[in-house]
Design a protein around this nucleic acid. Structure first.
Lengths: 152, 152
DNA sequence: TATTGTTATACTCTATAACTATA
DNA sequence: TATAGTTATAGAGTATAACAATA
């Protein structure tokens, strides 16, 4: 019942790059499902919650389209539905009357705060991390994101 | 131009848990967009590509619904569209005639192999990782996934 | 002319509910 | 009765193309 190495705590086998990406894909999917469920608890779709979470400052329709990585024509519908529920408001920008700023209302702020609060429970998975590991993970995630964004 | 500490390579500040989750969310979003774009290059939606990638063995409609975390009624449409293009085939299971196995055709295998091949370029971001960091990252991703799945 | 936002259109994914055919 | 799969339906996100208002 023993392997070739005799020592006690089994040395973990370093995963291959492909295995790491597989793990990352699985963790990402789990995160996305979690976020979708949390948003649904507040009566929001994931896109609506994502859009609301961007509105710390007012943003134009065009800026929202860029940050959400979708065509500008989609933003009209998403903002329509949020506005109909009073979570968001369109405002004309005086200096350029083509532009419409989207502003988060108080109700919208409340909704997204509830989402953020519920997501905090998710953070617990990483709460016990040592400082050294935090630095490694942050570096990896930034590198991964940069590499992916570059391809797009 | 110097800070309080004199030594040369600046010690990175360990990110907070919330900052780590923010980074993870951003990297996940980038990964998802990348996968969607790669699938689109092969004329597939991300759901179609995900479903095809599960078909190393034949799976029933019900099993596909579980693994894709959506209602069984959705699978009918997704498989319909894949089958219309010859990427997938429905087969009756003789021992239980209620069940339909979904089988990947040769064309379907070709398509998903092209997706996997194109995704390999994405892996490059993690290719230069040291063994110790791989082990840390794998452990983290598994813990994160387990924590998220548990909540669902 | 170029840009911002909207509309019209068509397609895919999504959940719910009701249905069928099997078990 | 319970399960596997389908259909019908309605709603939301998606891209494309054409359009009005403004720059």
């Amino acid at each position: 019942m023993s392997h070739s190495s005799a020592a006690a705590p089994a040395t973990p086998v370093p995963p291959t790059t492909a295995e790491l990406m597989e793990l990352f894909a699985l963790a990402s999917t789990a995160y996305f499902h979690d976020f979708t469920a949390v948003a649904a608890n507040q009566g929001l779709t994931s896109m609506q919650a994502k859009l609301l979470s961007l509105l710390r400052q007012p943003l134009s329709m065009r800026e929202l389209a860029e940050r959400l990585a979708c065509d500008a024509s989609n933003i009209t519908g998403i903002v329509d539905r949020l506005e109909a529920r009073g979570l968001v408001r369109r405002e004309m920008r005086p200096d350029d009357r083509r532009v419409k700023n989207v502003v988060c209302t108080e109700a919208g702020t409340d909704a997204i705060l509830r989402v953020r609060d519920e997501m905090r429970a998710t953070h617990q998975a990483l709460a016990g991390l040592a400082d050294a590991d935090r630095i490694v993970l942050a570096d990896l995630l930034q590198r991964l994101r940069a590499s992916l964004d570059q391809r797009a």
